[in-house]
Every structure is written in C-alpha cells, then in structure tokens.
C-alpha cells in the first residue's frame, strides 16, 4: 500500500443540531484517486470544505503528510492550506475569475511563487530581470496546462466567455498550476456530455500518473467513479457506510440500500 497522504480521523461537523459529517475517518493515498460518493445531502461537499479549510470542524483531525512534516489542516486558514500544505480544489459551481483572461487565471494561481520571486512585487515594479524570469516560467507552466487541457487557443479570451465544459477544465488547470500535493475535485463531471466526461477521465488519470499526487473526488457520475478511482468512500447522512475498491463498493448491500432505499417490508414479506 502506498503511504497515506491525507488522514481524516473522527471528523465531525455540525450545523446547529444537524450532523453534516459525523465521526468520519478515512485515508487517501499518494498517487491514488479516492472518490467520495453518496446521495445528495450526504455531507460530501461539507467534507471538502473541512479539508480545504473553508469550514472549521468541531471535532476530529485532518492531517496531511507533507515533505515538510505532518500538517494539521483543521488548524490552518483556508489560504494557508492551499499555500503551505499544497491542497488545491475546484468548486461544484465553477469559480473562475470570469472577467480575466484564461491565461491570467492560470497566472493568478501561481501568485505565491510570483510574489516571492518579485519580492512582494517590488522587483517587478523596478522591472528587475529576476521577476521577468519568474513570470516567463509561470507563463510556461500555464502553457503546459493549457496544452494538457486543450485550452491553448482560448488563452487570451475572457474566462467567463468559455463554454461550460471548457470552464470545468480550466478550473482543473488552474488548480494544477498551484502545484498541489492533493487535488480536491468537487463534481468535475457535472454537466459534461459523455465525450467530455471521457476526456476528463483521461485527464485525471494522466494527472495521477504524471504528477504522482493524490486526487480526492466527489462525483455523481458513476462512469467516472467506477472507471478511474482506486478507492471509494461512501457517505450517507454524514457517516461512512462503505469503503473499498469500486468493485467491492458496488456490491455492498449498505450502498445499494442508501442509493435505492430500503426494500418495502410489507411487499416482500
């Protein structure tokens, strides 16, 4: 087994009396695609928001094994999680910078590196070579991800003017430009047609193979989940009801019950 990248232990997130995530534990491996599935309202997006720091859980621990040491994500601010722990994410309802160009979206993603290279923009203000070199490198990285997501010819267009499927890919490219260790994708296949969905599968498999990072994925599209994930975690009402390989989870009676409902006792009995 590959060493774990993300350890979630006894995570609980309550909103008032509602347990959105209830005593949840699982691990996600390095170089693996871990899918989180479950019916609507099962707490998948809440889990994502806890991992990426947008929510602070009441109980439990979220640890990321980073070369710089183990990081307790529940204690970091959202932007620090992205910057220091290297956790990037996409959103269920795409969040691009719509009035900025596609390329600018990818350059903004490299903000941290560029800020350091430009000494908080001072070097850039003075036009030092050091900053120009860093910016050229950032453009090259952006070009790399534009090529991988087949968006190169849209590079100078406004991000908001792209078709929906392109925007989804751009959001993934933007997240990858931060050079993450863990990429969290919230329903990346939502709204995609079957062909785009198949392209997405290939892109995610390529990312796993080439970058060796961990991918955490919320998905409803079973062709994506079953086709590419190494492990599947199934949530229902905030609790984990099953975990395992796609094949194991598919046959699990608890999962079938959660998705299809309880068999009607009166009718069967």
């Amino acid at each position: 087994m590959t060493p774990s990248l993300l350890d979630v232990e006894h995570l609980t997130m309550r909103f008032g009396g509602l347990f959105a995530v209830n005593d949840l534990s699982f691990t996600a491996g390095n170089g693996e695609i871990t899918a989180v599935i479950g019916p609507n309202g099962a707490g998948k997006t809440t889990l994502f928001n806890c991992i990426t720091g947008f929510y602070k859980p009441q109980e439990g621990r979220i640890a990321l094994n980073h070369p710089d040491g183990r990081m307790a994500l529940e204690r970091l601010d959202d932007h620090a999680i992205a910057r220091r722990a290297g956790v990037a994410r996409t959103f269920q309802n795409i969040r691009l910078f719509p009035r900025m160009s596609v390329l600018e979206n990818l350059i903004v993603a490299q903000h941290t590196r560029l800020m350091r290279a430009s000494m908080f923009s001072l070097a850039g203000l003075l036009g030092l070579r050091r900053y120009r070199r860093a910016e050229a490198a950032a453009v090259e990285r952006a070009r790399h991800w534009l090529d991988r997501t087949a968006l190169t010819r849209f590079a100078d267009d406004e991000a908001g003017s792209l078709p929906y499927g392109h925007q989804r890919r751009l959001e993934i490219a933007r997240a990858m430009c931060t050079e993450p260790r863990l990429l969290c994708l919230d329903e990346p296949a939502a709204g995609l047609n079957p062909r785009e969905s198949a392209e997405l599968n290939r892109l995610l498999l390529d990312i796993r193979a080439d970058e060796g990072i961990g991918l955490l994925l919320i998905e409803h599209d079973m062709s994506v989940v079953m086709g590419i994930s190494d492990r599947v975690v199934v949530l229902d009402y905030g609790k984990k009801i099953a975990e395992g390989t796609p094949a194991e989870v598919r046959g699990d009676p608890a999962v079938i019950r959660a998705y299809l409902g309880e068999p009607d006792e009166a009718e069967t009995g």
């Binding site: 990426t52 947008f54 601010d77 959202d78 932007h79 620090a80 992205a82 910057r83 220091r84 990037a88 994410r89 959103f91 969040r95 691009l96 910078f97 719509p98 009035r99 900025m100 600018e104 350059i107 903004v108 993603a109 903000h111 941290t112 933007r174 997240a175 931060t178």
Partner: peptide
C-alpha cells in the same frame, strides 16, 4: 492581478493560497 482576482471571486482566491 491578485487585486483583480479578489474583485472577481474571493473564495477562489483563497482556494489558490492568496491571503
């Protein structure tokens, strides 16, 4: 660029490590 990104979407900014 971070200013403009902030104008466009603050949450996306935070998800990219911008304080």
């Amino acid at each position: 660029r971070a200013w403009e990104a902030l104008r466009e979407d603050e949450i996306a900014c935070r998800s990219l490590g911008i304080n």
